[in-house]
């Protein structure tokens, strides 16, 4: 399939989706499912009434903090566990347990521990991102080719040199994939935490949800959808730019 035809199909798919939304919206009405046109027309009012962009920006700042902390801890622990059988064995049972723990189930507990503020939201986002980054990095670190490491040793490179010149470049695509998966989970966790305590962007969704009309609610959902897609595409683009030779690794993310 040519690139032009693929793009035409994608645009057609989006057009059909928007059209279907519009028709369904006209049938069900604003109270049940506002049509696309009404959501767009009402969007400026949604932004104004709910301070949508200000709340979103505040939420994203806290998201970034928890997410970056999660990435750093995940990458460091992932590499250590991947390269040391001792650490792997000592940490694996607890990491596996944390990995399956539902973020939502931690919310009531973390409110007790951290209150309703910054710490609570950052910790929830951290917990959502860290295990995914860790596991993907871990698998990457384990699969670094022994040939590469032996070659490095044959050339008498120091441990530090081997780490920065061989290990990190080999791990890089894995780290980026882990960060992308982690980001999706971080955004979900952010909304879970914020809707529970009704602050930030999640608070907007909650408050818009109790209105009679679904115009504001759908506007907020459309916004977070675009933000999620944009952040994911940005990371994908960055990965492609900085490590084009490994783009097939992206299959890992599905």
């Amino acid at each position: 399939m040519s690139r032009g035809k693929a793009w035409a199909l994608r645009l057609a798919g989006i057009a059909v989706f928007v059209l279907g939304w519009e028709i369904a919206g006209r049938i069900f009405g604003d109270a049940l499912f506002a049509p696309f046109s009404a959501v767009i027309a009402g969007f400026p009012a949604t932004v104004r009434d709910y301070h949508l962009f200000a709340e979103l920006a505040g939420s994203l700042r806290q998201l970034l903090l928890g997410y970056l902390l999660g990435c750093i801890v995940g990458i460091v622990l992932g590499i250590m566990m991947g390269r040391s059988a001792l650490l792997d064995g000592l940490l694996q049972p607890w990491v596996s347990m944390m990995f399956v723990t539902s973020i939502a189930s931690l919310v009531p507990l973390f409110i007790i521990t951290f209150g309703f503020g910054l710490m609570f939201r950052v910790t929830i986002v951290f917990m959502a991102a860290v295990w995914y980054v860790l596991l993907v990095t871990y698998h990457g670190a384990r699969s670094v080719s022994p040939d590469l490491l032996q070659t490095a040793r044959a050339f008498e490179s120091s441990r530090l040199q081997t780490f920065f010149k061989v290990m990190l470049p080999a791990l890089y695509p894995y780290i980026l994939v882990g960060m992308r998966i982690g980001l999706a989970h971080a955004i979900r966790a952010m909304v879970i935490a914020e809707m529970y305590v009704i602050v930030g962007f999640g608070g907007v969704v909650y408050n818009a949800g109790v209105e009679i009309s679904t115009v504001s609610l759908l506007g907020a959902l459309l916004t977070i959808m675009l933000v999620g897609v944009a952040l994911n595409e940005a990371l994908k683009w960055f990965a492609h730019r900085t490590a084009p030779w490994y783009s097939e690794r992206q299959q890992l993310s599905n």
Binding site: I187, V205, G209, T214, L217, G228
Partner: peptide, 10 residues
């Protein structure tokens, strides 16, 4: 990309 929990009000 929509966080599923945001669909709860809906």
């Amino acid at each position: 990309a929509i966080p599923p929990v945001a669909l709860v009000p809906f």
